[in-house]
Design a binder for these strands. Structure first.
Lengths: 195, 195
DNA sequence: TATTTTTGATTGACTGATCAATCAATAAAA
DNA sequence: TTTTATTGATTGATCAGTCAATCAAAAATA
């Protein structure tokens, strides 16, 4: 079996498996065995590459936030005007894979974990700040800095809130409806300033 | 020691202890021992009264949501006009004890748990629906039913989002700022309809 | 009132299961 | 042969849940 150069392959497989298992389970109290099984390796190998369960979970957060970031960067590049860039940021937040119930469940679990794990919190804070600053940067082209800060705060909260409510699955909102609500928030606020 | 009629006293103590320990710990992976210790009783007694850890946690959610509901009812009674009632609902959501970091951490943990525990989800869904319907009921007095539904959806999402972001502690927002943002959302939307 | 019986409250000690983490051993490439 | 990949077996710790025993108040009885 042992071919050389498996490390990056296994790491990716384990990180992906962790996300899937955590999403299905809706909690971080998943066993290394489950994750390893999902990745098609032994639990011992997971420990070999990550050292500990905690480290694997932290890596899982890091990698998935990195991917999210890449999506945002790509979407921002495609958009031309500030208003289009704002829409792009919103759209990525609600894109299909992010809005899947298991993905939401996983993020929810990580948000809870951030209460305990300093490193997990650090990554989530970086993400939150980036979202905020992307919004502010483009809003500034359309209104004053102080208004931009306020609107960005509200929009970010709304995005996160729509997420958590989607996770509950009480009143399942479609991707389009979520985007529409957030877009509407921006539009209404910007119009109110003009008028 | 044994005085008769301790059951309700112990149940309350354990439910309160659970909330505190979960909040401090930022997770539901707390031991019955910790909870019992915090409540000043033995772990065995916790099992005696609640049967299982899961049942204690479910009771904890139920009791605390009930208290939240009572707060809302009281606040609604004091408010006169629909617009005042909307403000009352918002204010209760962000009232001091609800906005404390440990309380937020606990709710976050329960939201995550709702992915697994049918009963926990049921209670949280009931709360979400009630928040929504309180908002809709009073908005209807100020705008059309369809606008009311939309605005309520946005406001509820914003409230939940401000919560989760507060929990992260990245950009700590004050109670007043959170209330202001949500109020502003309502006002701006209602004005946009009039204008 | 004094004594006995009953019952609710309470716990220490124990058990069985689970799980993260370790390690020594194996197998295949280099 | 040395290095890298991989796992089965094992360990040690943790914890939910159980149980038999204790203690003291209350209720019944004398």
């Amino acid at each position: 079996m042992p071919k050389v150069g498996m490390e990056p392959v296994r790491r990716k497989a384990l990180v992906d498996a962790a996300m899937r298992v955590i999403g299905d389970h809706g909690s971080l109290t998943v066993t290394m065995s489950e994750i390893a099984k999902q990745a098609g390796v032994s639990p011992a190998l997971a420990h070999h590459y990550f050292g500990s369960k905690e480290q694997l979970l932290i890596e899982t957060v890091r990698v998935h936030l990195q991917r999210l970031r890449d999506s945002v960067v790509t979407a921002l590049r495609k958009a031309k005007t500030p208003r289009e860039k704002l829409s792009a940021v919103i759209r990525v937040s609600f894109q299909a894979d992010q809005f899947a119930p298991e993905t939401i469940a996983a993020w929810l679990a990580f948000y809870a974990e951030a209460q305990r794990s300093e490193e997990t919190r650090r990554f989530l804070v970086i993400y939150a700040r980036r979202l905020h600053s992307n919004l502010v940067a483009n809003l500034k082209a359309l209104c004053s800095a102080s208004d931009a800060a306020r609107i960005a705060e509200g929009a970010a909260a709304m995005i996160d809130g729509l997420y958590i409510r989607q996770g509950l699955g009480s009143a399942p909102i479609s991707t389009e409806a979520s985007i529409a609500l957030t877009e509407d928030y921006l539009t209404t606020n910007l119009n109110a300033l003009k008028g």
